[in-house]
Design a protein around this nucleic acid. Structure first.
Length: 399
DNA sequence: TCTGGGGTCCTAGGACCC
DNA sequence: TCTGGGGTCCTAGGACCC
């Protein structure tokens, strides 16, 4: 199940509920980032905006050139999370085996949950109920595995239900351009075109071992997907995250080390907070930089002991930054922690805490309590105040 | 012209070990 | 002087997804 134009639909529903007279789904409109903060890209578009050739991911600036009556509405993840949760709750009535694949997509395994009903009828019921009770539309794809169901959900939109059973692969999936296949992105398409592979069918009929030789594991995956093969289960348990990161495009290119480090501190603050919120500790810290000419590079460091301490993560991140920084104008800064483990399962590092670390941990705990109770931005460090306008509104605020 | 931010997974090369 | 084969772990970068 996939929400149609999720961010735009959810914004529309929310605005209507607040008394706004126009349904922004019926006009040329988009959900976009903040152009003043240089994060102005299209995140979702209305069907009419799409007719003007506007595509997700392109700069709003371009989008406006394509349609001068375009209306732009801001991103609000607080709203998106709310509708995503409402939807998940409704879908959970139909099966325990449900996987949240993204903020607007779920896989439902109905194998043992049909209670004598027909699969298509259940899909129809879900579709109707979501529209009636939540106010937005969804596409539903039906099949025997996740890959095929997902491909089916991407067929004609909006508000449609499609099947893609194995016997339908040849008719419904093989004629599609190879770029429509899940996991075939813009770098792979030209490589396949050079091999005269233009449709999903072309890919499916290509020799499997040739693809493996050419593309390795990825080649096997492509071949499997093009033939509708996917053995993965619907994963109903919420996995721990494998990494936690925070990055920000700066309002102007920065070159001053002190200035950039202030941003890094703010990023670490949030990353460490989220680590502790999830009861995790990290073994690796990673710093990412993007230069003004859009070159990305990153450096990482393994820690001696896993940690969730704000102070420790800041220290490591600063070291990494100073080591890698080549005194060039920086557009984006990011901090990410990796190799995460559960705090409880790692007693060693807790016993190995030095007195100073214990003090630091207490500070983190007190700050977390304040943030949990009064919002992430309820308390902040003095050095952060002057870069506050740099850091985006924090999506954890509602907690 | 202007180009987000959150992630996952894979690969190649180098260091180091026996 | 010229030189193995196996393995693990770490790092940097890149592809893809929504």
């Amino acid at each position: 199940m996939d929400v149609n134009n999720a961010f735009l639909s959810w914004t529309a529903v929310n605005m209507l509920k607040k008394g706004y007279k126009v349904d922004i789904r019926t006009i040329p409109s988009i959900i976009g980032g903040d152009e003043e903060r240089r994060s102005g890209v299209v995140l979702a578009k209305s069907p009419i905006a799409k007719k003007f050739g506007i595509v997700t991911g392109e700069p709003i600036y371009f989008a406006r050139k394509k349609c001068n009556k375009l209306e732009v509405f801001p991103v609000d993840f607080k709203i998106f999370n709310k509708y995503s949760n409402d939807l998940y709750k409704l879908l959970s009535e139909y099966t325990d085996k449900i996987e949240r694949f993204s903020i607007d997509e779920c896989f439902l395994d109905l194998t043992h949950y049909l209670n004598g009903k027909k699969l298509e009828d259940v899909a129809y019921e879900i579709n109707r109920r979501v529209e009636k009770e939540l106010g937005f539309t969804v596409n539903i794809g039906i099949s025997s595995n996740k890959l095929l169901a997902k491909m089916a959900s991407d067929f004609e939109k909006p508000n449609k239900i499609h099947t893609l059973y194995e016997y339908e692969i040849e008719d419904k999936m093989w004629p599609l351009p190879v770029s429509d296949l899940f996991m075939i992105g813009k770098k792979t398409v030209p490589k396949l075109y050079n091999l005269r592979i233009k449709t999903i069918g072309d890919l499916a009929r290509t020799d499997k071992n040739f693809l493996i030789k050419k593309f390795g594991k990825f080649g096997l995956m492509m071949w499997n997907y093009s033939n509708g093969i996917d053995e993965t289960e619907v994963n109903e348990k919420e996995d721990n995250p494998k990494s936690i990161g925070n990055s920000v495009t700066l309002p102007y290119d920065m070159i001053n080390v002190d200035e950039i480090e202030k941003v890094i501190i703010a990023l670490c603050d949030q990353v460490a907070y989220r680590l502790r919120y999830n009861n995790l500790i990290a073994n690796t810290v990673n710093v990412q930089l993007r230069t003004s000419d859009f070159k990305d590079y990153s450096h990482q460091k393994q820690l001696k002991f896993a940690t969730a301490s704000t102070k420790e993560i800041i220290e490591v991140a600063k070291n990494i930054f100073e080591e890698m920084y080549k005194k060039e104008p920086i557009r984006l800064v990011g901090v990410r922690v990796d190799n995460l483990e559960n705090k409880e399962q790692n007693q060693i590092s807790i016993f190995s805490l030095m007195e100073d670390d214990k003090k630091q941990e207490k500070i983190d705990i007190v700050l977390d309590k304040l943030k949990n109770k009064y919002g992430y931005n309820a308390i902040t460090r003095a050095g952060k105040l002057d870069v506050e306008n740099i850091i985006k509104r924090n999506r954890y605020e509602e907690k």
